[in-house]
């Protein structure tokens, strides 16, 4: 599940980040192209953790961009798209690449449309979702940094 989730969340987070960017179509194309190109290259197994970590960092970066008070420039959005594409592509290449790539693209497009629609009525809504994504990415990053898994622990009121 982890292998599928991280690139999908990158797509969602990136889409939210470019909601108010003028060059969002170009940025989206760069994201797709970069992810597709990277997904073509088979990555050695030892890079798996690095790919996921790159995805979580990318989600945090995209989430932070969603909070930029005056938005970001087209150049910055393109650079962000390239970064997000690289991280998503690096994980996509390890799974069922064609299917996963289509899923990533679909999530990006659907999230962008939904976020634009939501932003018209409740401008803060995409930012709130971005904060949830940041929270998830922070948790995932921390989990990756945990030296050992404590194993079974009872539920907190069990």
């Amino acid at each position: 599940m982890n292998g599928v989730l991280s690139p999908l969340l990158v797509a969602a987070s990136f889409a939210i980040a470019i909601v108010n960017v003028g060059a969002r179509f170009r940025a989206l194309m760069v994201f797709f192209a970069t992810a597709a190109v990277i997904a073509l290259f088979p990555m050695p197994a030892w890079t798996s953790d690095a790919g996921h970590l790159a995805c979580w960092i990318s989600i945090i970066a995209c989430g932070a961009v969603a909070y930029a008070p005056h938005g970001v420039s087209a150049r910055f959005a393109i650079a962000l798209a390239a970064g997000a594409g690289v991280s998503a592509g690096a994980v996509v290449t390890r799974g069922d690449a064609p299917k996963l790539f289509v899923l990533v693209a679909l999530v990006a497009v659907v999230t962008l449309c939904a976020a634009r629609a939501a932003a018209r009525h409740v401008p803060i809504a995409p930012k709130i979702v971005a904060s949830w994504l940041i929270a998830v990415a922070l948790l995932a990053t921390l989990l990756q940094m945990l030296p050992v898994t404590p194993g079974y622990l009872p539920d907190h009121l069990e």
């Binding site: 982890n2 989730l5 998830v136 948790l139 995932a140 989990l143 898994t149 404590p150 907190h156």
Partner: peptide, 25 residues
Amino acid sequence: YAHGRELPSAADPIGYSVGFVFATG
């Protein structure tokens, strides 16, 4: 803290945290 203590013992902690954070939101 209460939920973070349990999280690493989940079978799929990432998926679990995604669902948990979104439900909370």
